[in-house]
Design a protein around this nucleic acid. Structure first.
Lengths: 228, 228
DNA sequence: TACGCGGTGGGACGTACGTCACACTATGCA
DNA sequence: TGCATAGTGTGACGTACGTCCCACCGCGTA
């Protein structure tokens, strides 16, 4: 594991509360996983005994409805954690994890982790905080599904992605989200076609420029206003 | 606090991991709150320093959109906990708590609780489990908003309420949910009128009978099938 | 008795968005 | 070089559900 990896890892909620010594000890249990774009890490319904932190690349968490339609819970990038729910509440995985780009992950066995939870209360408290934040965010998204129309939700999703993955450049805020429009649609809970039309509309108004699996945000204020 | 209250309280996730002695100590910090139907316990945006467990009655958690429309996150009954998010992640409340029926609550100050989190890892672990379950459930609801039509969501909501508040009787499963159709509509993310029509349709098919702030479920299997 | 008020029942109408259909453009792969 | 396959762009059409209506019912208050 490179220095850079150690750095990325230390920003994950799991490690945030640990001192250098503790972090080192916990890192000793980490195994690295590499995935190519489209490759599946785990599937909905399987029993999970590990959690992961993204070191490099992006991974999506998806749920599949009985009829095959898919729903994207979130797209995770470096330092973000997932797969921890079955550590706290031992049940089968409720989502599948699939690589959106080539990516590298740090995996940690639940058995290696449990002693840290009981022995280091500050770790547990940090995790409670992380879950509380997630719950808040999820509630926000739920409210949007009820109150906001599709273009609004697309705008919101782009702003969220921009915050996490955006790179300022001469032309504007470059957001290389790596998602197809189909995936973007699953993320906002709409059909690919309507998302496409919303994007086209934004582009026509010069709020952004569409690129392959990316957008360049040109007028973030308008986009923000549209998202409310 | 009556014996009955102690019993209700002990089923809350906070107390579940404690032995009789610990539970007694924690109970010493509890203050009781009484509310009449419609009364507000706290409002979205306020800073919160307490969490609550329902002793008797029902309380709803609601969010208000900027334009005034409301969204019901959940309806909580005895032994259920709320208001804990701002303990783990100190931010203003993201929902308001309003009594659906006359009710009694046990309130616990965050300051009284924090030592328990750090000193009793089993409590923290129990809370992690509770939050993980909530997160799972919230994700389910989100998927329903995307994939299931309004009648389906109404059926699901009724089944959920039935599981938590249902009373078997000669006629059928009596679910005294105490919600107006307006509130039910806010719970499933739909308009009052469509919810009304969905209920009327179910009643006409003899799947249930509508009563004031209650339903009697007559054919739970059909209702279950419709909810999928 | 009358009057409001909160809640329910249900019809008429408009529309946002899903579905279907097809054309077009990249990107790989033989 | 060509062909397949994945992704994008756009129009036509149907429909589920929101909005707007109003009628009705029960209940409390004057």
């Amino acid at each position: 594991m490179t220095d850079r990896d150690v750095d990325v890892l230390s920003r994950a909620p799991l490690f945030e509360a640990l001192d250098e010594q503790g972090a080192k000890a916990l890192r000793a249990n980490v195994t690295e996983v590499r995935l190519a774009r489209g490759q599946t890490l785990f599937n909905e319904g399987e029993t999970g005994d590990r959690l992961y932190v993204v070191l490099e690349g992006k991974i999506k968490l998806t749920r599949t409805a009985p009829d095959g339609r898919e729903n994207l819970l979130s797209v995770l990038g470096p330092s973000e954690m997932f797969g921890e729910l079955s550590l706290f509440d031992p049940r089968p995985r409720t989502a599948s994890a699939i690589a959106v780009t080539e990516c590298r992950l740090a995996g940690l066995g639940h058995d290696d982790l449990r002693p840290w939870l009981t022995g280091h209360p500050e770790v547990a408290v940090q995790l409670l905080r992380a879950l509380a934040q997630r719950l808040r965010k999820t509630n926000d998204v739920m409210a949007d599904l009820v109150f906001t129309d599709v273009p609004g939700r697309v705008a919101k999703a782009l702003l969220d992605l921009a915050e996490r993955f955006g790179q300022p450049s001469e032309a504007g805020l470059h957001v290389h989200h790596d998602l197809t429009q189909e995936e973007l649609a699953q993320l906002v809970g709409a059909s690919r076609e309507t998302v496409n039309k919303a994007l086209a509309d934004f582009a026509q108004r010069n709020w952004l420029r569409i690129e392959a699996r990316a957008v360049v945000i040109l007028d973030i204020d308008r986009l923000r206003k549209r998202s409310k």
